[in-house]
């Protein structure tokens, strides 16, 4: 009985001693791991560090449970891993961070090299005298005087628009209307007609001015429609150029009462005369006569014929010298 007790006590002592030894080994491994961590082992030897840490944790758990055999087995794995991690971490230690020389403080110059009254620190052109408005830079030249300075003028010797980088707008038909505004860029035309050639709407005959486009009025009224202004403008020019007296004749179709038609044709002839006077024709040269439906030029039985009969004619009465 006594022998058994002695044997049990011996076993306990051995177990305690073994546990103590394992804890010491575990502490040593933990110290290695700490050292490796300090040397950046997580980046340099992640596998080794992980193996060491995990097995150390497992060993400590086993020791807490009193299982020193399994703890030793884990420490067998942890110890070399920790040493490897430490060794690798030492070889790939963090790169020494070179302390850069502090940059010298900027020296503020109070000199004025070009003598333009603006210190060099504020002078955008420190070597060339310039005005304070241009921060010390000279006024830029503008050889073609188009308001676009030569540094940004793509045509510095030809005046041009600012929107076109100082170059003139192209004008293919050379009619003075730039292509961008010219509705007929390949045919010369006046600016009034947006660069398009004037359409000839009249022909001056010996005894009359022939219209290629009839003058239009509001229905049953003596109000000229705006689409007839061009043709009347040309008539006015022709009258002035020819220097003749003109009889403005108003005609209608046969629709409606004869008296009414006569009255309407007279009113329309008067309206045309008034317009021509507004355009600069002398009133004394013009005479307005309404003929009503008396002088048809086509059959009133058809719509087309009636349209032709509703007209204004310009007859030359005499030539003035």
């Amino acid at each position: 009985m006594t022998r058994a007790r002695i044997a049990a006590c011996c076993c306990l002592l051995v177990a305690c001693a073994a546990g103590q030894a394992s804890r010491k080994r575990a502490d040593a491994v933990a110290a290695d791991i700490r050292a490796a961590r300090e040397q950046n082992a997580e980046a340099c030897a992640p596998q080794e560090l992980a193996v060491a840490e995990a097995n150390l944790r497992f060993a400590q758990t086993a020791l807490d449970r009193g299982d020193s055999r399994r703890a030793d087995a884990h420490l067998e794995s942890a110890a070399p891993a920790a040493r490897d991690a430490l060794a690798k971490a030492k070889t790939c230690a963090r790169p020494a961070v070179a302390q850069a020389e502090p940059a010298p403080a900027p020296r503020v110059s109070t000199t004025d090299a070009d003598g333009d009254g603006i210190p060099d620190v504020d002078d955008l052109c420190p070597d060339v005298p310039g005005s304070p408005e241009r921060r010390g830079c000279p006024l830029l030249t503008d050889r073609d005087r188009d308001g676009v300075s030569d540094d940004i003028d793509r045509c510095p010797d030809t005046p041009g628009a600012r929107d076109n980088f100082g170059c003139p707008w192209p004008d293919r038909d050379a009619d003075g209307v730039a292509d961008k505004d010219d509705r007929c860029p390949d045919e010369p035309g006046s600016p009034e007609n947006q660069g398009c050639p004037q359409k000839v709407l009249i022909v001056v005959r010996k005894d009359r001015i022939e219209l290629k486009q009839q003058i239009h009025f509001q229905p049953n009224r003596a109000v000229i429609l705006s689409d007839s202004y061009d043709v009347l403008g040309q008539v006015a020019q022709a009258i002035e150029a020819a220097n003749v007296a003109i009889r403005i004749e108003g005609h209608t179709d046969n629709v409606g009462k004869r008296k009414e038609n006569l009255k309407l044709s007279q009113a329309r002839a008067d309206a045309v005369k008034e317009y021509l006077v507004q355009q600069g024709c002398e009133a004394t040269k013009l005479k307005a006569v309404g003929f009503g439906q008396k002088r048809p030029i086509a059959s009133n039985s058809t719509r087309a014929g009636r349209t032709l009969n509703r007209r204004v004619e310009f007859r030359m009465e005499e030539r003035k010298n």
């Binding site: 997580e42 596998q47 992980a50 193996v51 995990a54 097995n55």
Partner: peptide
Amino acid sequence: AAYETALAELYLAK
């Protein structure tokens, strides 16, 4: 993430 992966593997095996 070699470190975290290795730890995960070891803990899972354990």
